[in-house]
Design a protein around this nucleic acid. Structure first.
Lengths: 216, 216, 216, 216
DNA sequence: TATGAATGAGGTTTCATTCAT
DNA sequence: CATGAATGAAACCTCATTCAT
């Protein structure tokens, strides 16, 4: 296939079975690791399969023993690093202090973003290229948004947040604010101070929801 | 190629001169229009030069009479539609009612985004692909951010906004919130209600800055 | 293109590694042989890569498995036939009879030139086209010139050659005379008699240096 | 036509008639002058017709009002500078001192070569590319060779030159020696001292023919 | 005669994918 | 399972030449 068309939709991958032998597992693992290296270095588009196999120290043909396409190995890379890809969400919002919870959540997200900036940039790129991946990503975001929306609803029900806000939309918008700010800072290279950024985002989030400290 | 005369190489595109005849201007315009059609239909990556020339009804070679690359004609497309590409910014924040100004600004941005959703998606894609374009875009965003930051500072100085916020960061974050929400809605297809969205974003913006109505 | 990964660019060809399999070596050899055939038949400029791959019986793309450009495969052709590309030089000038040595050397050169006339014509052509190749060729000529110059110096020191001549320049000029005559005859098609030519050149060389038979 | 084939033989040019108007003559002259500039700067192969017309300050299409091909304008350039393209020949060999005549002739040739080095390089290039031009050049060389051969014959007849030499071959070889040395020096960039070079070549020529000063 | 844009044949180059060993 | 060479479909790009104005 010509290179320019490499990102076009391929037919659904029928969940390939895992390698049968230990050697196979090792080779596959090497390929996934190499793919991450190459993707982060060159971006998804500029990464050639042969770059990945070279980096992995395998023959070009071996790629197809484990993957059908660049998209597929990219999915495998993502699965490998799933834990590092956080979404901004407020954990345990109701337990104890909601403001502290929001702050902790934002800081955790920003720290993770900074640590994995190259990967996050990659995600942004692939999301603009590959429909399937874009939808996968949206599903994940939506899940987080719903979770945050529930937390907001709870606060509103407790009289601790602005009751005029649409919880779903507010959750979506505030999550977006944080992730966009992180993108601006570490992908576009805005060079904001980390603490300032965390503080400002948290403040805007809290102000935005008009969160008040619960009555003790 | 070795035989390529060295003196002819040009690194930076030295602002190609415009067509000298009416016919030339027409052809160029047809190409730019065709490019926009093809880009919006197929995306930047899948657009082939031959698609553009075919759409424009010219020979493939004519492309190079006016442009050197897909990137260059994309720039021309952008220039053509520059007015439609708004940035979220608050116009005339201090004259009269700042809340109304923010609301008007956000609505204008969202309307523009909705109208040009395909183009905005394209922008996002190209920004993840092409460094040069990414930087151009950042420069524009920064300009708007600074403008909004000044408006926020003025409000803070007048005692009408949360004085603890870093104006620059707040401006960046809130702009990002709006543009990210628009992206989520019209590119990722979130399908939020327009009025709800506008209202929520404005509310979050106002809450976020703790803006108060000026004393009459 | 902007998307070309920067780190992949290579300015100087970093000595491509040889094929790892026998099949690869065979294919490469077929390509080099085909290239020689096509170059000699069509000249360097008119030779198209597709002609070479067709002649070699490979796919067009296979060319790039082994070479980056027409220039590169031309170098490979030259390397293959290096032994046949003599420079006019006087071997073992001092051992025994210098006149016989000069004559033998000239005859050897002319015979080689005649045998490889097509190739020599090719060399002349490429030398006028490609700077890199021109310099490579000059380096080789210079080496031979220096060698002949030393021989001339020795003769001068022994009182057997005109001591007023600049050895370096004389060596360069006489070598040039021979190679130019060969070019005139077999490339321009002058159709001189081989023996006459060899005799005349040798005579002019000997006269030119005023070489005398050593005293027995 | 594709560029790579630009040097292929075109059908014989049927001696185009000269421009009818003064303006036409001026445009043609500008084109020829521009062609020389561009050819000397870029070489024959890398010169594009559009470069020439741009340099001449005319439209691309105007080229075909006066010439049919790059070859044709090249011929026109040559005609324009015919006087500067000397061949090494011994003028007025018999009148007075033959040695002085040879020296004068060689110096004149070398001076001309140095002055027009770029042009001479161009000649070499085109001679390896274009059959028609190669033959034209050979015809001219042959004429000079015959002239020199006659001079040599005269000297032999007068007992002033080595009678064992074939006059034609000797003339060809010695002319070739001089032109090759000039090429080596000013095209290949050997950087020999002019006077040394002239002296050496003359000495080799005289020695080669075993020329003796005529008896007064 | 001058203009400069339009044409398109013909080459080059890339690289995902296949396949014989 | 591993290898690495072979394939060929697509793209790109150039520029001599033509042509409408």
């Amino acid at each position: 296939m010509a290179r320019q068309a490499a990102h076009r939709k391929q037919d659904a991958a029928p969940d390939r079975e895992p390698p049968r032998t230990a050697r196979g597992a090792r080779t596959r693992a090497r390929l996934v690791e190499a793919a991450r290296t190459v993707f982060e270095r060159d971006g998804f588009l500029d990464a050639r399969l042969v770059d990945i196999t070279t980096e992995a120290g395998t023959a070009a043909g071996s790629f197809y023993t484990y993957f059908d396409s660049k998209e597929e190995i990219f999915q495998a890379v993502l699965k490998e690093v799933e834990d590092e890809m956080l979404h901004p969400h407020v954990r345990e919002l109701n337990e104890g202090d909601p403001i502290a919870a929001i702050e902790a959540s934002n800081r955790a997200y920003l720290e993770s973003y900074e640590r994995n900036a190259k990967l996050m940039q990659l995600l942004e790129q692939v999301a603009t290229i590959d429909d399937e991946f874009r939808e996968m990503r949206k599903r994940r975001s939506d899940a987080f948004m719903r979770r945050n929306a529930r937390a907001i609803q709870d606060l509103q029900a407790s009289g601790l947040a602005d009751p005029t806000l649409n919880p779903m939309l507010a959750a979506g918008a505030l999550s977006g604010m944080v992730s966009r700010a992180a993108y601006t800072n570490w992908v576009l290279g805005e060079d904001w101070d980390f603490d300032e950024l965390a503080k400002t985002l948290t403040q805007l989030w809290i102000n935005g929801l008009k969160i008040q400290r619960p009555h003790a």
